[in-house]
Amino acid sequence: MAWIASTLVAIAAAVSCSGERATLGLEEPIRVRATFKEGPLPGASPTTLDGGPAALPTVTAYESASTVVRPGQAGKVLSGRTTPGAVAVAVRFADLGSGYWVLPVGGPDPQNGGELVWQADADFGIGLPPGLHPLRVVAIDALGNAGTQRDLGLCVTAAIADNLNACNPTRNPPAAVISLSWDVPADLDLVVVGPSGRVIDAKHPRTEADAGADAGDAGAAVGVIDRDSNAGCRADGLARESLVFQRAPATGSYFVYVNLFDACGKGPAHFRASLVEAQLRADGVTQVPVETLVRTGTLLPAEANGGARLGTFVFEIPFP
């Protein structure tokens, strides 16, 4: 029996551990409807002066409707063309992730000399770090040879509004942002009671009722809640609301509450409330957003009240 078992084990060993690994890639910063391969992107770096042998396939066009990407964004279209010798293109962030995605190229484009077209639908991770990140592609031929890589500089916005400061430090971030995020697709609301006693929430998103274009510079100090996340239990994938002050808020104390409007049939919601303020960098000129206050907590489904109460008090912010 031992030799039979040994033979079977040998057969199993011979045929096992083969095949292409297939991962969902949900932990990757970019997900493309294609095949994921671990490791660095094949081909020569785009900074290589020598473009390599002319016979190698090349990405001749690479474009997207926008170079700004929001963390968690889905369905971003990347497209381009390759030289006719390519059979696939591979794509990954140059500085993020553990591998790349391979997708086959399509048919020839008669308007561009028979170059082969390609298109990828890309989703981006919710934890994508803000800032500039080159998204790199390379063409691959049937023998697996890759040509020179090509970059598309993407600006990844911050989860909390920063006026694209992460990509362009010369742009100042908002003076202050009170932000609330949570972990389940329930309808939580950020509720802030301002110094005047005005209640600011998703239904009343401004700190002052009529401030705006007519208010001049004073209007810029008006805080606005950016969205009603998961309103009506329609999950938006963000689960975050922020009260954004582009200029310094009016002096006084702001009382911050978190209210469970609707549990949406989910379990306890773990939330995180924070205050982010603009502070000067070392150069004394440009600003950077810094998280200065954080509180976390949990709301039970039984606390859902449909907006009948302010909710759970989180912290008080005394703006000078």
Binding site: C17, S18, G19, E20, A22, V102, V105, A142
Partner: peptide, 23 residues
């Protein structure tokens, strides 16, 4: 029991269907 499965459900490094690692 070990099931060594050989199919064409995967994609290799040039995007061509190949064996998927699904033993």
């Amino acid at each position: 029991q070990y099931d060594a499965i050989v199919d064409s459900l995967g994609r290799n490094n040039v995007g061509v269907p190949s064996d998927l690692a699904n033993d």
